[in-house]
Design a protein around this nucleic acid. Structure first.
Lengths: 214, 214
DNA sequence: AGGCAATGAATGAACATTCATTCTCAGGGG
DNA sequence: CCCCTGAGAATGAATGTTCATTCATTGCCT
């Protein structure tokens, strides 16, 4: 029975961990990492403050656990994108709809909070760096694949396109986080337009400048 | 002489204010608004903690004063842009070089910090909202002017282009803030490419999708 | 002297963390 | 069937620290 006991305790420990991180996400999104108290987190999790320490050794551990979770989630969303078998442009649009515009406002706030924390906490900085690198590499492969099947202009530079896309999506999150009247419909339309222009080769090095006036 | 006395005391009060906000910027960029202490700010300003209260009524007032300053600075940078008499595309590139890529990393961190703070402090939220609105309106006028003089494609939608540009620049700041190896040269090149494509009409509603494959 | 600036120790509140205590519940013996 | 026991889970009051804010005091300039 030691197996059973172990697996049971494992499971409940994981559940508790998940429950606390879920609560922490709400508390931290509302107050920020440093202004939120352990009381806030405990209240959101429906348990006492002291009990949090049975699962996490410190407040900072909760912060870092949450950052890791969010980063992993972002990376997973991109992995889904790469595995898609549909039309590539369509797949990217769908990913944007679901994993960017589909997120609640608090999620965007949490992401901005993590960016700020990355500026001070080296462990969090390393998490964002590593996720960025993963996403950039994935996007690069995606654009290469799109070129290979003719879904993207041959003039497209995959590396530059990947950096552009990452930048653009980051900007979308910042605007979702701070604009209370963020218009998801209108912004989705803009994003789709941007994507199509990107695949059409608008960003190809130097080439587009000529078309401007002529 | 009451005039003199008044203006003298005004000036020194303003100087002190400026000096404190300058110090606060450094302290807050390093620790974040909530983890930075009044001691940190005082030390950075070269004065005692108690003395800060002769100029600001509270820590929060310093935070808000700093946010206001940064937002005003951003708005001013855009105003410069609008007043330029050069080629419009060139002026925008120059503005980007100076007011985005030309800023030190801490400035970008400060901006991300302000975004995070806007999520909790309504007064800060209002500041960012108002600056965004100003910048959006300015950009819209800029794109309209560019179309009028033939510097931008007639197909360009100024409103959409303005929203896109704001999003893109926000993403650049986020990446400057978090990427320790941010390559200003390479990113500037990318940004210039994006701008040229934008002016060339790449974002024109629907039109660009067709060019993609054909 | 006298007022203005600045100091830094003192105050009190807020908070992360700890820990003695209480609760819960599964199992077993009467 | 009921009571006991003990171990893991959970509580919440206590602890010690950190920090914003205050204020009595000191220095400085005219």
């Amino acid at each position: 029975m030691s197996f059973n006991t172990l697996s049971t305790s494992r499971r409940t420990a994981d559940e508790r961990r998940e429950r606390i991180l879920d609560a922490a996400e709400r508390a931290f999104a509302a107050h920020g990492f440093h202004a939120a108290t352990m009381q806030h987190v405990a209240e959101a999790a429906g348990m006492s403050a002291g009990n949090l320490y049975r699962t996490f050794p410190s407040k900072e551990a909760i912060v870092e656990g949450l950052c890791a979770l969010d980063q992993a989630e972002g990376a997973r969303a991109f992995a889904d994108l790469l595995a898609a078998d549909r039309d590539i442009v369509e797949a990217v649009c769908a990913g944007l709809r679901e994993h960017v515009f589909g997120k609640p406002r608090e999620k965007a706030r949490m992401i901005v909070e993590i960016w700020a924390e990355a500026g001070r906490n080296p462990r969090v900085a390393e998490m964002t760096r590593s996720t960025d690198a993963q996403v950039l590499a994935g996007l690069e492969r995606l654009f290469e694949a799109a070129k290979a099947v003719g879904a993207a202009s041959p003039a497209l530079d995959p590396r530059i396109a990947a950096r552009f896309f990452l930048t653009f999506v980051a900007g979308l999150f910042r605007r979702m986080a701070t604009e209370s009247d963020f218009d998801r419909e209108a912004e989705t339309a803009m994003a789709v337009g941007v994507l199509k222009a990107l695949f059409a080769g608008a960003l190809a090095a130097g080439a587009s400048a000529e078309e401007a006036i002529g």
